[in-house]
């Protein structure tokens, strides 16, 4: 089989590259585009550390053959911060000590980002459900759930301030 030219919009920018057959979205991000925030954990869609947002939905990028999503809009962790200014969720993770080894953090942040895009005022139960596909081995989840609720509050406060 021949390689294919794949076009995507990644974090708002056009990306075009040559993908070998069977290249997953995760491999394309890490190897073709040099975006290494999404991690290869289980490589079978169960740990969530490769999660990215494709056309508004959070997906495990290790399971997506990249040639099947030509033209899609992909958001990765690299796109969350505005220069050095962290997103409200990222700031809440840092200040709430919601990372330890950090391996699950990229997926946690993308799952949480997708949740807040859909539901800016989630309950604790909503947060738990949103990250139930993301495995963390260090924190015991408590600090992560707290940080997502805090990040949601920060984002709401920021959008209220912007509207005023």
């Amino acid at each position: 089989m021949a390689s294919t030219i794949v076009q995507l919009t990644v974090n708002g920018q056009d990306a075009e590259f040559l993908a070998k057959p069977g290249t997953t979205l995760l491999m394309a991000l890490r190897e073709n585009l040099g975006l290494t925030a999404a991690k290869r954990g289980c490589a079978q869609g169960t740990c969530g550390t490769c999660d990215v947002i494709v056309d508004g939905r959070v997906v495990p990028s290790c399971l997506i053959p990249v040639e099947t999503i030509v033209g899609a809009a992909v958001e990765t962790l690299e796109g969350l911060a505005d220069g050095n200014a962290l997103s409200p969720l990222q700031a809440a993770f840092v200040e709430g000590f919601a990372t330890q080894c950090g391996f699950c953090t990229p997926g946690m942040l993308m799952s949480a980002t997708a949740l807040l895009a859909e539901n800016p005022a989630p309950t604790r139960g909503d947060v738990v459900r949103a990250i139930s596909g993301n495995v963390c081995r260090c924190t015991g989840y408590e600090a992560i759930v707290d940080a997502i609720l805090d990040g949601a509050a920060r984002a709401r406060a920021a959008s209220t301030a912007a509207a005023d």
């Binding site: 289980c42 079978q44 740990c47 738990v128 459900r129 990250i131 139930s132 495995v135 015991g140 989840y141």
Partner: peptide, 16 residues
């Protein structure tokens, strides 16, 4: 493999 190894998730947390 991983997917069959049981661990508690965020919904199985005790109030701590």
């Amino acid at each position: 493999d991983y997917s069959e190894y049981l661990m508690p998730g965020p919904a199985d947390l005790a109030a701590m």
